[in-house]
Design a protein around this nucleic acid. Sequence first.
RNA 1: GGCCCCUUGGUCAAGCGGUUAAGACAUCGCCCUUUCACGGCGGUAACAGGAGUUCGAUUCUCCUAGGGGUCACCA
Length: 480
Amino acid sequence: MKKVRVRFAPSPTGYLHIGGLRTALYNYLFAKKEGGVYILRIEDTDQTRYVEGAIEALINSSAWAGVVHDEGPYIQSERLPLYKKCAEELIEKGFAYYCFCDKDRLEKLRDDQKNAGDTPKYDGKCRDIPLEEARRRVAAGEEHVVRLKLPENRVIKFTDLVKGEISVNTDDLDDQVLMKSDGYPTYHMAVVVDDNDMGITHVLRGDEWLISTPKHVYLYEAFGWEQPVYVHLPVILGDDKKKLSKRQGDVAVHDFERKGFLPEALVNYIALVGWSSDDGSEIMSMQEMIDKFSLDRISHSGGVFSIDKLRWFNNHYIRIADIERLYSLCKPHFVSAGFCTEDEYESNKRRYVLIIEALRERLGALSDIADFKDYYTAESVSASDSEAADIMEEPGSKAVVASLKKILTDRVASGEAAQISGDEFKAVCKQVGAETSQKGKGLFMPIRIAISGEMHGPDLASTAEILGARLIIKRLESWE
RNA sequence: GGCCCCUUGGUCAAGCGGUUAAGACAUCGCCCUUUCACGGCGGUAACAGGAGUUCGAUUCUCCUAGGGGUCACCA
């Protein structure tokens, strides 16, 4: 059995997005599972679409997600001589031909065909120009491209590992341009030349390539090369069931990083849109996914990307994350939410660690921290809804608030520290309960609302420890 | 429009001729908890439709419908 070699081959036209990450991930998982090699190749054959810094962004996002290539990156624009040589070989063998049609003619041709209700297709004008003549014109500097010379009415078959056997008639295909007039290869030319040259054994790529695979298969035949195993991955869809795109919100991997999604959560979740393990596991580390990965469990149909489920995974990983790691990851979120400056964050480490500990069980993303800004920093509070307001109107509640305020005020007045520990606060609550004969919800709900204005929120004892007695008293006063 | 692919609950999905049709997210309810959560238990909810093949179809075949992809000197 030949050693597995796979590749992820993005074009540097922007940032790595969710769909690209999953394609990369599946390639990576498969390579690791099979003890093979995962290669990164940059398909930059369209000079007009190149985006500065895109290659670095692609690599950084992948690395963040834990998908690291073993070989490469290979850059296609640095391999032009190879494609040129291969194109000439094709022409020599009669599998391709020079075409001198200009873009205006082709455009008009397409329009006419469309208007006539036909499928746009090259009409073969240059197909039969004698090679000698064509070469003369090329030598004379005439602008040209190289086109694939597809045989007529031939059925090309190939087997896709997830879609099964696919067959397409060459009459439904076009004489695809292989080499552009600027000397760069098109995707179709570059993929097969490179996949062959790099010894790629399995091609795992997006669904959108399924239709053009027959052309690639034909090229392998023309060159006399052994074709790889094809695996076309189902698309990732947005909520509207359309292909996931910018329109539906963030799709760049970097956006998820910025919002406070942990890489292990994103990777774990994304692996499950389009693939499932045979034992039904959902929470999996990268290593577990590698161990369980198999191509025959890839879905046939597209899947909707569910931000809710991603948040659930993320919450799981936030809960089990090391606190030091969270402390450092949460910094930008506290700062941008207006909790503190960077310096304050560093010098009040204990305070922020306490907040993180209290919040980690309810965060779907680290950026949710912003939702708790008022909870932890407001000077005064008021009932967040009518239900809370009603509870505060009850006599029992008023007694609880009064008692709590007195105990806390006395405590501060007697010279005790305004700092109050969670255990001390619990003791205070117990005392309030004894003085007012309230217990359970009747005791804690008024306290909770009086302190935060809300009926739901983080644990009270830790909240009190974070706020301190003075701020609590201040908030209690806002109910008078 | 031509060609190709896809179709199990709201979502991800298991299932690969005979099952009470898994599980997860979401949702609802109960229990636990002197608060909020966590957690535990349970509920609602699906084989797109129609013909076949078969003793028997979610599973195999065909048709219809719906969805997606693709028809560039873009990948």
